[in-house]
Design a protein around this nucleic acid. Structure first.
Length: 415
DNA sequence: TCTGGGGTCCTAGGACCC
DNA sequence: TCTGGGGTCCTAGGACCC
């Protein structure tokens, strides 16, 4: 039996916990570069503001003060997420951290009313310890727990889907593309094959569904029947790739701007890499124009490294090499990215026989010191000059809230 | 004028092996 | 003229998730 615990309007709720002025009012949180809406309070949803809606489309609502707005503040959200997880650990069940605002929890088989009581307990505790409201959906499989959670959100924040008739009723009331694992494309393919509702997807023949959607589709169908096809994944699997990318505040054609950006993204990605005690053997760099610009350009270049690395300066110089391969002058670039992949454990790196620089300890020590200082004081207390100082390309974030929980300077003052 | 950022898995096809 | 059967690995692209 699985519970899916999901924070309601997560990013918007995080902002509201610390700023009471925002409470019970329309609020939207914008993506990086203040581009589009990535979270909405209930009141904002009621105004008809859509998920991923471009910010300029609702600028009248914002300028007139009807809708409050915040730039995204991921330091705050990740820390609040950590607090929610720590609260849930108290229940001593196996858990899988599924996303920044969602947790799958294995719960014991029991009666509907007992499960509802457990869900209420979870809700109360999280509310009391973090100030955030969660909804809890419970079902026999992860997919059914997801479905239950969706229904919980539409009602009283708790839903237990146990009996066949209830499940079928829920399935009939749901769109195909809203079933976990079935997106817009798959829904379209199913409709073409004359399958129009999740209930039909549940009852379909195994061989037929496999033909239409492949094994993933079959697994979803099985899950809807209560047969577990997705197990709880509670071992923190090492990441397979790390991507650091940003849209620029203003498009740029200058190689120097791109070099700064790429250097800064490499620094960020490499920090993450070391945090996970990994080293990378492949680095690639992407650049692109805006989606809507007249002249479209997208390109990517990568380099395989003979020895896995986690030393920022080396990786910055490789990143710049990649950039030079794909840079073309007179193009207005809007976005760049750095991706690291092909990881190995930092501790067990096999040194290259022909690598002259066998003594890496100095570099390792330097990186450890760098990380320690930046952790202690500020993310960029120490930074690489190649990342630039002015950073004209930087994203716009006009309405960012303080880092209430992760920065001493931003600590909430109580009068 | 203005549309995010970060991941995962699956599949098909090609190259290569015996 | 006629050309098997079985496998692995890699990559690009597609689809999904939040």
């Amino acid at each position: 039996m699985f519970a899916l615990i999901d924070c309601n309007n997560f990013f918007a709720s995080c902002e509201m916990v610390f700023d009471l002025k925002l409470k019970d009012k329309p609020l939207v949180v914008l993506s990086n570069n203040d581009g589009c809406v990535i979270a909405r309070s209930n009141e904002a949803k009621k105004l008809g503001i859509k998920m991923a809606q471009p910010a300029f489309e609702i600028k009248d609502l914002i300028n007139s003060g009807i809708v409050n707005v915040r730039s995204s503040n991921f330091s705050l959200y990740t820390d609040m997420s950590r607090r929610v997880m720590q609260t849930l650990v108290q229940f001593e069940n196996d858990m899988e951290l599924y996303s920044v605002d969602e947790v799958f929890m294995e719960v014991p088989d029991s009666s509907k009313s007992d499960l509802e009581k457990l869900a209420a307990k979870i809700r109360n505790k999280v509310k009391m310890w973090t100030g955030l409201s969660v909804s809890v959906g419970i079902g026999a499989t992860k997919t059914l727990a997801k479905l239950a959670n969706k229904q919980a959100k539409e009602g009283s924040n708790i839903k237990v889907l146990l009996h066949e008739s209830e499940i079928d009723e829920a399935l009939s009331a749901t769109n195909l593309e809203d079933i976990w694992g079935i997106g817009r494309r798959c829904a379209k393919r199913l409709k073409k094959a004359n399958i129009h509702s999740p209930l039909e997807l549940k009852l379909i023949d195994d061989i037929i569904i496999k033909k239409i959607l492949g094994v993933m589709g079959l697994r979803v169908s099985l899950e809807l029947r209560g047969i577990n096809s997705f197990s709880l994944d509670n071992s923190p699997t090492p990441r397979k790739s790390i991507l650091s990318s940003r849209s620029f505040g203003r498009p740029t054609s200058e190689l120097s701007d791109l070099e700064e950006a790429v250097s800064s993204f490499t620094t960020k990605a490499t920090e993450k890499l070391r945090k996970e005690k990994q080293a990378t053997s492949f680095i690639s760099v992407f650049v692109s124009t805006g989606k809507k610009s007249k002249e479209q350009y997208f390109n990517q270049a990568g380099i395989s490294l003979s020895t896995p690395l986690s030393y920022t300066p080396d990786l910055i110089s490789y990143a710049k090499k990649c950039l030079k391969k794909i840079y073309k002058p007179h193009i207005l670039y809007k976005k760049a990215a750095v991706m690291l992949s092909d990881f190995s454990d930092q501790a067990s790196i096999q040194k290259d026989l022909f690598e002259k620089d066998l003594n890496l300890t100095k570099k390792e020590k330097l990186m450890q010191l760098l990380d320690k200082i930046n952790n202690r004081y500020d993310k960029e207390a120490l930074f690489f000059m190649s990342s630039g100082i002015d950073r004209k390309w930087k994203s716009n974030r006009v309405n960012v809230s303080p880092k209430y929980t992760t920065s001493w300077a931003d600590l909430l003052k109580v009068k």
